[in-house]
């Protein structure tokens, strides 16, 4: 040890990397590989102080397993819990699928910009969610429905690989029952029991009347499918700034330091994950 003649200067900034413990209140199995976790911070003050915009994300820590970013899939209007829908694709997501009610995880956030709510007031909103891509949209759908009169016509398109892969089935049914909401679901590969639409997400266009001039399109899904969705929307006449998507990138720190989620000159965790098509086009040339 050195002589303690030097006083250390201590920056009072809190440790942005340290999560807060949260309990799992409920685990709901959505599909064979997707579960929705309902979570609540253990510290009452933190739970009460936790506010977010639809489209923002949190970093979830699992004991001895690390941390990963997930979009919040519940609406900020439900203030005594938050939900994350997680597809089992890797180590951490595989581990959390073994967690049950009462188990604890760590959470920090919310991070990112969230959806541009101010642009949506008074407009029609078209949601296009491919697979688990419906999760971040669900937060916004629930939010818009809680303030229904402030928005125009709401159309929700969901595409899944097979009928068994459809997420938020109960929510989709509830939303569809509302008079002024149109929900359409399609599957890529059908089963004998399936009576609904078959085909890619882009096969749903004819199911709804969409007026490109006063509609904002909000899209989330695998890059393979959303690029076709963009192309069709542009062909229909959507302005580039009215096509809004949320991007998935490898994220480590969530606070704009680690460099992993960089896209062009932007960082997905700070400037995103929500970008308009116009912004994405500018960023795309520099991946």
């Amino acid at each position: 040890m050195k002589d303690s003649a030097q006083t250390l200067v201590r920056d009072t900034a809190a440790n942005v990397y340290q999560p807060y413990p949260a309990s799992i209140l409920e685990v709901k199995e959505e599909t064979g590989d997707i579960k929705t976790f309902t979570l609540k911070f253990k510290d009452k003050e933190i739970q009460e102080g936790f506010t977010f915009r639809p489209g923002q994300f949190v970093l979830a820590s699992l004991f001895n397993c690390g941390e990963a970013a997930f979009s919040i899939c519940s609406s900020p209007t439900f203030s005594d819990y938050l939900q994350l829908s997680i597809k089992k694709v890797g180590l951490l997501t595989g581990e959390i699928h073994r967690y049950a009610e009462g188990d604890e995880i760590g959470l920090r956030g919310p991070y990112g910009n969230g959806f541009p709510l101010e642009l949506l007031y008074g407009s029609n909103v078209l949601f296009v969610g491919g697979g688990i891509g419906l999760a971040p949209l669900r937060s916004l759908i629930q939010y818009l429905l809680s303030k229904r009169s402030e928005f125009g016509q709401i159309t929700i398109f969901h595409g899944a690989r097979t009928p068994g892969d459809i997420v938020f089935e109960k929510d989709l049914a509830t939303w569809d029952k509302q008079e002024d909401v149109n929900v359409e679901t399609t599957v890529y590969r059908s089963t004998p029991e399936w009576k609904g639409n078959v085909g890619p997400l882009t096969s749903l266009w004819e199911k709804a009347t969409i007026s490109p001039s006063n509609t904002k399109a909000i899209i989330c899904g695998h890059p393979a499918i959303i690029s076709y969705v963009f192309f069709d929307l542009l062909k229909m006449g959507f302005a580039e700034e009215n096509i809004i998507s949320t991007l998935e990138r490898n994220m480590k720190c969530g606070v704009g330091k680690c460099g992993h989620c960089s896209i062009g000159s932007k960082l997905t965790c700070i400037h995103g994950p929500v970008f308009t098509y116009r912004e994405m086009k500018e960023l795309s040339s520099v991946s």
Binding site: G131, R161, D165, Y188, P200, H222, A224, I225, F231
Partner: peptide
């Protein structure tokens, strides 16, 4: 031209990734 390039860039080689 920009749109065509962007469109092209984001299509992975496998068609098996529907979502």
């Amino acid at each position: 031209i920009g749109r065509a390039l962007w469109h092209q860039m984001n299509i992975p080689s496998t068609a098996e990734t529907a979502d």
